[in-house]
């Protein structure tokens, strides 16, 4: 098996309490509800979904910033959920995260040098000053910043530059897996392409495995090898990036795909959009059965809507949640 990361039926629930003195559990938010997937070494998995679908909770669970309620996170064969906290600390450097907001993800009181050297020291704790200086400058050059700016503070850089620094910090401990949580959605279009190029180049050069989280399908399509679409805590469709974009089966994926505006007036004018009804459901009160049914344009009965959908491999490597309200002609897959 060359799977580097395996998620096995991950569930992350948050209990909801009510009551002033004696707290009673009144409900559960199933932020991540049974997600299984695997990543090969060097692969880029795009994770798509709207706000509240659990993609950020899933990434925090993989990072063990949030304990999983059930399931296993296997990183290179080790189950991270069972590691003691001291062993986990040592393991952390193998998984690093890039956050969305380059203004919040860097400590405003630390220079670029101290931010990066701190991260390098987690892997190489006994470096001398000279070596550290050299490593920091190499790192800064790798991500396209001039090393002469290493004594500057985050607020002296632009958004794109800060995101570069954040990427450098994530790369500093020489991780094997990078989780990028909406790394470009806070950036301008012209800066966005610079950062995407950088990420692609680095994953290739360093043979990194990456989970790329975004709500922007056009970005995900460009960068990922495989794509997983999440809806209310579950993966509803997963497969090869090309297949999933050219030939999506789940109506949610279709709707996402058709919601992406195309910068071409002709296409836009002639195109027939699948506009979904309503908003994504709230995970506090999920609808019974299939969470997508009430937004789906496909005809289905109330009874059918209350059935659960099942994730099936309809083609090698292409998984879809099969349910009357999610795919055309669902019986063919049953």
């Amino acid at each position: 098996m060359d799977d580097y990361l395996i998620l096995d039926n991950i569930k992350t629930y948050f209990p909801v309490y009510k009551g002033l003195i004696r707290k009673k559990q009144v409900g559960i938010v199933k932020a991540v509800d049974g997600v299984s997937l695997s990543l090969r070494k060097g692969e880029i998995l795009g994770l798509v979904g709207e706000s509240g679908c659990g993609k950020t909770t899933l990434s925090r669970t993989i990072m063990q910033l949030q304990p999983a309620t059930a399931g296993r996170v296997l990183l290179d064969g080790k189950n991270l959920c069972e590691l003691s906290s001291s062993k986990m600390k040592a393991e952390r450097i193998n998984v690093q995260m890039i956050f969305q907001d380059p203004y919040a993800s860097l400590n405003p009181r630390m220079t670029v040098y101290s931010t990066l050297s701190e991260a390098i020291a987690t892997r190489y704790p006994n470096l001398g000053r000279r070596d550290m200086l050299e490593r920091v400058s190499t790192l800064m050059k790798t991500i396209g910043l001039n090393p002469s700016q290493m004594k500057k503070y985050p607020h002296e850089f632009s958004g794109g530059q800060r995101q570069r620094i954040a990427i450098a910090r994530a790369l500093a401990p020489e991780p094997k897996l990078i989780i990028a949580d909406e790394p470009v959605s806070a950036l301008d279009v012209s800066i966005q392409s610079q950062i995407l190029n950088l990420l692609l180049r680095l994953t290739k050069e360093m043979n990194l495995t990456m989970i790329f989280i975004s709500h922007d399908l056009s970005v995900v399509k460009y960068i990922s090898d495989r794509i997983a679409v999440m809806y209310l805590g579950k993966i509803v469709e997963m497969g090869d990036a090309e297949t999933l974009m050219e030939n999506p089966l789940h109506y949610y994926t279709k709707a996402l795909n058709s919601a992406v505006p195309v910068p071409d007036p002709d296409i836009e004018r002639s195109r027939c959009r699948i506009v979904l009804q309503g908003d994504p459901p709230s995970p506090i009160k999920p609808p019974k059965g299939c969470a997508f049914a009430y937004r789906s344009p496909l005809p289905h009965t109330q009874e059918e809507a209350e059935q659960e959908g099942h994730l099936k491999e309809v083609r090698p490597g292409h998984w879809v949640e099969v349910h009357p309200a999610t795919v055309d002609d669902y019986r063919q897959y049953a």
């Binding site: 709500h215 922007d216 399908l217 996402l256 058709s258 919601a259 992406v260 979904l276 908003d279 994504p280």
Partner: peptide, 8 residues
């Protein structure tokens, strides 16, 4: 807003 809501 979310992509699907954007379209709406």
């Amino acid at each position: 807003l979310d992509v699907t809501v954007q379209a709406q």
